[in-house]
């Protein structure tokens, strides 16, 4: 199987990376709880008591997973992502990140319109005016439902400001 599909990431690497990640989170949790007191006072456990041991358990669990993937690895040779799958996932994920960054800068309405328009054009192969119309329709619907219907404002950027929409 691995011969047919080019390997992008091995599962073993990812297992180890994830275990290290969770162990890191565990360490952070232990440190954070230690700062708010991890003892057992006359009022019962202090604020950090439970989170501290939660952190310790996370570190222990992560270490077990790490050791297992290093020494007793069952998924030896398994592929986490093939080149082809990676391209597919990144093809979705990168525009998603771009959408988020644009939304943070220009507001969610502009971000949504650009994202939907772009995704339809490049991933769906629609003509530009169909994509643009669909994007405008969805964004307009968002505006109607959120701002006018339920009065829950979405993040807005400078463009709405110029247009006088608050």
């Amino acid at each position: 199987m691995a011969e047919l599909e080019k390997q992008f990431l091995s599962r073993k690497t990812m297992e180890m990376v994830t275990a290290l990640l969770t162990a890191g989170a565990g360490l952070a949790i232990c440190y954070g709880s230690w700062r708010s007191g991890i003892g057992w006072s006359e009022m019962g456990p202090e604020a950090g008591y439970f989170p501290f041991y939660v952190g310790v358990l996370i570190i222990l669990g992560s270490l077990v997973t790490l050791l297992r993937s290093l020494f007793f690895y069952r998924h030896e040779g398994e592929v986490f992502l093939t080149m082809e799958k990676a391209r597919s996932v990144l093809g979705f994920f990168l525009p998603l990140v771009a959408f988020m960054v644009i939304s943070l800068l220009l507001g969610l309405y502009v971000g949504t319109a650009l994202y939907i328009c772009g995704a339809m054009m490049w991933q769906g192969g629609y003509r530009w005016w169909i994509a643009a119309l669909a994007a405008l329709a969805v964004t307009g619907l968002f505006y109607l439902v959120f701002e006018i219907g339920f009065q829950v404002p979405l993040l807005k950027g400078p463009i709405e400001g110029w247009l006088g929409i608050y």
Partner: peptide
């Protein structure tokens, strides 16, 4: 794997504790 279940469950507990602690009135893990 039990170790993985342990890790995700404990992460859930940790996420829940972030913020104001009702009993002591102080901030935790912020």
């Amino acid at each position: 794997a039990p170790a993985k279940t342990l890790v995700t469950m404990m992460l859930g507990f940790a996420f829940a504790t972030v913020g104001m602690d009702t009993i002591s009135g102080s901030l935790r893990l912020t």
